[in-house]
Simulated assay, not measured.
Amino acid sequence: MDLITDILTIIKNIREQLGFTQAELANKSGLSLRTIQRLESSNKEPKGHTLKVLSNVFNMEPKVLQDKFQRIESTKNSEKTSIQLINLSIISFIGIPFGNIIFPLIIWYRNRKSKIVDDIGRRIINFQIIWWIILSLLLAISPFMSRQFFSNTQIILYVLFVGYAFNVVVVVVTAMKLKRNDLDVLNLPIRFI
């Protein structure tokens, strides 16, 4: 999943606004059909001769076309930063009870205009809600399990430590996936928000 899957590629968008097919754009520009297809599928900024030719066909200055690509890149970077902040703010749970829900929720709420930030932010927060519910249940039953199975050894601290360590591992794994632009993270069937 790319960071801007809901946005048409720039070249495709301009081409369709002008009413050209890919083949017509290739003929008018003198570029190969394969080049047009590659530009549209990759959404990479054209350079040099390709930029000049497409700008002429689109009846715009090359700088205007470049600016469109730079705005998209800036939006992608902003979205990626917001998602990373949501994920990293989870670590606050170590010192602040429910910080793993409160801080990501605030960051998500402020940046949810972006469809991708909204979707991934929801997934991250939903996972944290589920994590808190499960950890709370384990902490509640651990004294009873301790008496029943571990001859009165207090396991509540072990449960807490393992639960916290698990959540830190999830944050680190999610951060590594986000760094690789892999947005297929924390897809759980249960959704609270």
Score class of each variant (00 low, 15 high):
F103T: 08
F103H: 12
F103Q: 04
F103Y: 11
F103E: 13
F103I: 12
F103A: 15
P104N: 00
P104K: 02
P104M: 03
P104W: 00
L105V: 09
L105G: 14
L105W: 09
I106Q: 08
I107H: 11
I107F: 02
I107N: 10
R110K: 14
R110N: 15
R110M: 10
R110E: 13
R110Y: 11
N111Q: 07
N111R: 09
N111K: 11
N111G: 04
N111Y: 04
N111A: 05
N111H: 14
R112V: 12
R112M: 13
K113P: 03
K113S: 15
K113F: 05
S114T: 03
S114E: 07
S114C: 09
K115D: 10
I116G: 08
I116Y: 05
I116A: 11
I116N: 06
I116Q: 14
V117A: 12
V117F: 09
V117N: 13
D118M: 10
D119H: 08
D119V: 02
D119M: 04
I120Q: 10
G121I: 08
G121R: 04
G121T: 06
G121Q: 04
R122W: 03
R122M: 09
R122Q: 14
R123K: 11
I124V: 12
I124F: 03
I124G: 03
I125F: 13
N126V: 12
N126S: 08
N126Q: 11
N126D: 10
F127C: 06
F127L: 09
Q128M: 09
Q128K: 09
Q128I: 03
Q128E: 10
I129M: 14
I130F: 12
I130Q: 15
I130K: 09
I130W: 05
I130T: 15
W131S: 15
W131R: 12
W132V: 15
I133S: 12
I134A: 04
L135Q: 09
L135E: 03
L135R: 01
S136V: 06
S136Y: 06
L137F: 13
L137K: 00
L137C: 11
L137P: 02
L138D: 07
L138R: 06
L138I: 02
A140S: 12
A140Y: 14
A140N: 13
I141M: 01
I141R: 00
S142G: 01
S142A: 04
P143C: 02
P143L: 07
F144L: 05
F144D: 02
M145P: 00
M145E: 05
M145H: 06
M145I: 10
S146L: 06
S146Q: 10
S146V: 01
Q148N: 05
Q148P: 01
F149Q: 00
F149C: 00
F149R: 03
F149L: 08
F150I: 00
F150L: 10
F150W: 10
S151K: 09
S151A: 08
N152L: 02
N152I: 00
N152Q: 08
N152V: 00
T153F: 14
T153S: 05
Q154L: 07
Q154T: 01
Q154Y: 04
I155S: 01
I156E: 09
I156W: 06
I156Y: 04
I156N: 07
I156C: 09
I156M: 07
L157C: 04
L157W: 10
L157H: 11
Y158S: 01
Y158K: 00
V159M: 01
V159A: 01
L160G: 07
L160D: 11
F161Q: 11
V162E: 00
V162C: 03
G163C: 05
G163I: 12
Y164N: 05
A165E: 01
A165K: 00
A165F: 08
